[in-house]
Design a protein around this nucleic acid. Structure first.
Length: 187
DNA sequence: GTTGCGATGCGCT
DNA sequence: GCGCATCGCAACA
């Protein structure tokens, strides 16, 4: 499933008028990954992760933000890819209206911002990407990409499971969680 | 340019 | 009750 994550780079997620070409994603590998929501087994919140691939897992965090993942593995693997950033390539006017005062580059820069630009909400949790108003079109060819540590996690931040398109200005700034262990510390 | 911190509410222990 | 896969602003360099 880690191999699948970079294939989402360059893919286009579309919700109504607005489309975003993904420039940055982050992989979460189910029950064996301390950083994953699925780490402690199925709960009502993460149940979509334990379902089939090709569905949207949306969750609410920090009292105000929504983030979105795409489930990618077999149902029992509970793996998903967090959509971290991208470029708005369609529906620019609507995306701007949702995020007044924000530059075009930053409209979908960061996982919560991406959801706001696309208009994704908690009610979109579980959406089937093959038959819903939300669709995902995979890119024809993989873009050159880089990998590095994951953003914002307290646990297991150093697994190099963040993927981004080299040189793309819409990739979010890397910030390590202040509560994460020092770089290179054992998990 | 970077770093620090408050906002805000739900899921889980 | 506590922690959080975040963001944006204020302060500093």
């Amino acid at each position: 499933m880690i191999e699948v994550a970079p294939r989402l780079l360059g893919a286009v997620i579309r919700h109504g008028e607005v489309a975003v070409r993904l420039s940055e994603v982050e992989a979460y590998a189910g029950p064996d990954d301390p950083g994953s929501h699925a780490y402690r087994g199925p709960t009502p919140r993460n149940s979509v992760m334990f379902g089939p691939a090709g569905h949207l897992y949306c969750y609410f965090t920090y009292g105000m933000h929504v983030c979105a993942n795409v489930t990618v593995g077999p149902a029992d693997e509970a793996s998903a890819v967090l959509l971290r950033a991208g470029q708005v390539i369609d529906g620019l006017d609507e995306a701007r209206a949702r995020r007044p005062g924000i530059s075009d580059r930053d409209l979908a820069r960061g996982p919560a911002n991406l959801c706001r630009a696309l208009g994704l909400q908690l009610t979109d949790n579980g959406a089937d990407l093959s038959s819903s108003p939300i669709t995902l079109e995979l890119g024809a060819a993989a873009a050159p990409y880089l990998t590095g540590p994951r953003v914002g996690l307290r646990l297991a931040p150093d697994r190099p499971w963040r993927f981004w398109i080299e040189g793309d200005p819409t990739v979010s700034a890397y910030r390590r969680s202040p509560k994460a262990a020092p770089i290179g510390a054992p998990e």
